[in-house]
Every structure is written in structure tokens, then in C-alpha cells.
């Protein structure tokens, strides 16, 4: 029970996010209307994706330092969950964009950057599947994972600020800036980011435990 406190915390945070996200007071903005509440459900997907991909890269580095199956499995599963969050982020973003900006895809630098980021990680999955031997697959995909993440950073953090964007905050912070994120929004936004990210970590945890068990089973058979 004591070991699982963070799972309980995740559930509580998510319940709080959904309830407070739908019921709380939000600032009245012109085009956004009530859709400002998507801030609690769309934006945390991106924060979750970046953080989970960061976990993946950290485990790739750990794999190169200390090649164990566990590090490799966690890196791979985290990358896959990162892709899930990225796809959800793109789909929800498109739905939101359709009713505020008028188009599903409006050639916004952040939309493009996120699509390219997903392409990188799809390439990672394809690269992994093209090796038969386990050790070689683990090492080379770890190398690509780190390399791609290093190439992704300028894409996500520098490019959108250099070009005009429909997203808020293209001069300051990547996700938001003070002028449209007042304290009422922050109250729910930070727990939302934490909750969704922890949900992702939970999924990674379950999946990698499952994968490790599977591999152990295959070894004994």
C-alpha cells in the first residue's frame, strides 16, 4: 500500500483536474469561450510527452553506460507512451483548432514541429524493428534516441519562438505566458500537468514490468 501512494495521488490529481477543470471559474475570452478549459486536457499532453520522452532518453543513456535489458525495455516503452501522448496531443489540438482558428491544420509552427517530433519517434520504432539481434538493437536504437532527442530540442524550443504562431507565448515561454494564464488557471493547470504525466509514468511502469516478465518467460522456456 505504501509503495503505491503515487498511484493514488495520480488518481486524485486526475479527478481534481476533471472536476475543477469543468466547474471552476475561468476568464472570459473572446473566441476561446469555454474552450479555455482545454488548457487542462490538451496542453498537459505535450508536457507529458516531453517529460516521458526525457525519461526514455535518460534510460537510453543509462543503457549505454550499463547495458541491461531493463534499461532498454524502459526506454522503449517510455518512447511508445510518449508517442501515445503526442498523438493524443495532436488530435485534441486539431479538434480545438477547428473551432477556434477555423482549420484542423493551420500551418502553425508548433503544429508542424509536433508532427515532425512524432515522425522522429516513429522512425525510432521502425529502426528498432529492423534489427534481429537484441543487443545490437538495444544499443543502436539507444544511440538514435539520444541523437534524435538532441535534434528535437531546437525544434521544440527555439523554432516556434522565431516564427509567428497562433499559439500564445511565442515570445516568452513555450506553452503560455502571464497575460493569458491568470492565477485561477494556474491553480488547476499545474495539478493537471502533474496528474497526466504521472498517469503516463504509470503506464510506462505497467508496460515495462509486463515486457520484462515476458522476456524472462521466454528465457526459461
Amino acid at each position: 500500500m505504501m509503495k503505491n501512494w503515487w498511484k493514488i495521488l495520480t488518481v486524485l490529481l486526475l479527478i481534481f483536474t476533471v472536476v475543477a477543470g469543468v466547474l471552476s471559474e475561468v476568464p472570459r475570452l473572446a473566441i476561446l469561450n469555454e474552450t479555455i478549459r482545454n488548457l487542462y486536457f490538451h496542453v498537459p499532453m505535450w508536457f507529458g510527452m516531453i517529460l516521458i520522452l526525457l525519461i526514455s532518453v535518460i534510460y537510453s543513456i543509462k543503457y549505454l553506460r550499463n547495458p541491461t535489458i531493463k534499461n532498454d525495455v524502459i526506454a522503449y516503452e517510455a518512447a511508445k507512451v510518449g508517442i501515445l501522448f503526442g498523438v493524443l496531443g495532436i488530435v485534441t489540438g486539431m479538434e480545438w483548432a477547428k473551432f477556434t482558428w477555423g482549420e484542423y491544420w493551420s500551418n502553425d509552427p508548433k503544429q508542424n514541429a509536433s508532427a515532425i517530433g512524432l515522425l522522429i519517434y516513429f522512425a525510432y520504432v521502425v529502426l528498432r524493428s529492423s534489427f534481429a539481434e537484441q543487443q545490437q538493437r538495444a544499443r543502436i536504437s539507444a544511440v538514435y534516441n539520444i541523437f534524435a532527442f538532441a535534434a528535437l530540442i531546437p525544434l521544440l524550443f527555439i523554432l516556434p519562438r522565431l516564427t509567428d504562431s497562433l499559439h500564445p507565448g511565442n515570445g516568452g515561454n513555450p506553452g503560455f505566458n502571464t497575460y493569458d494564464l491568470d492565477s485561477r488557471l494556474r491553480m488547476v493547470f499545474y495539478p493537471a500537468v502533474l496528474g497526466w504525466t504521472m498517469l503516463g509514468i504509470w503506464i510506462v511502469n505497467v508496460r515495462s514490468r509486463f515486457e520484462l516478465l515476458r522476456q524472462r518467460l521466454y528465457e526459461t522456456v
Binding site: E34, N38, F41, M45, L88, E95, T100
Partner: peptide, 13 residues
């Protein structure tokens, strides 16, 4: 007030 967009987004997730 476009609240249904929020519902759709939540449903997607």
C-alpha cells in the same frame, strides 16, 4: 460557449 469542444477533447483523450 463551445463547451462541447472541451467534451470532445476529453472524450478523445
Amino acid at each position: 460557449g463551445k463547451i462541447w469542444v472541451v467534451v470532445v477533447v476529453l472524450l478523445t483523450v
